[in-house]
Amino acid sequence: MLVLENIQARYGAITALRGISINVQEGELVALIGVNGAGKTTTLSTIAGIMRPVQGTITFQGTSLVGRSPEVITRMGLAMVPESRDIFGSLTVEENLRLGAFVRNNNLEYRQDLKDIFGLFPILEERFNQLGGTLSGGEQQQLAIARALMSHPKLLMLDEPSLGLAPTLVDQIFELIATLHKRGVTILLVEQNVVRALDIADRVYLLNTGQVEMSGNPGQLRAHGDIEGIYLGTKKRQATKESKS
């Protein structure tokens, strides 16, 4: 469904991605894991059209995404929930959701979709007329995911959905992701919480300094034993981390 081949991306002089190749099949839940700066968010930004790769190809259902604007890519069926959630704080929850359905532009379906969304996120029905900016972090995360779902995406990209949330909320968000996956939504998940990501993903890519260091199903990654060691990349990196803490 989504294929990235040899993607390279730069922020000015800094190379953030050094030839990333990943793919996502329809109905899969694929997780990108790795430390800060590994290139996870940059990979998503490049897919979403926010960043332009300097090299490589991105194809979605056979169509190239490189050089297309974010709005066109969204209309093709990719929805992104950014790490910063980016709720419109001065708009109500309802207006946030209505804009999520912008690409569909169908009032009848919108009403039906709202009911579905309220089933998944009961809190949003309670907060329906409140300004987005008045929601708590967990509620904003739910709204961000709900807003993305309103467009009926073929592929949902979630960037660190558990970031900054209390442990009980993290459970809730991961349950929700699992539910969406069971419903058949194709998901590309960026996550720092490796244990959680391995629990729900079908396949995992471990990124390190802008490259895919390891990939496979969670069992294969776990088979490497020391997940924490894999996650941190090298023993040397691990040592540095320990000496710092």
Binding site: E71, T74, A79, E95
Partner: peptide, 24 residues
């Protein structure tokens, strides 16, 4: 109107508005 909401959303966060499929 949805267009009005899009205008307000765009002055709040232009990039996110585009990521919802609203043309810049």
């Amino acid at each position: 109107t949805v267009l009005g909401m899009a205008l307000r959303a765009a002055s709040d966060n232009f990039r996110m508005t585009r990521m919802l499929g609203v043309s810049a």
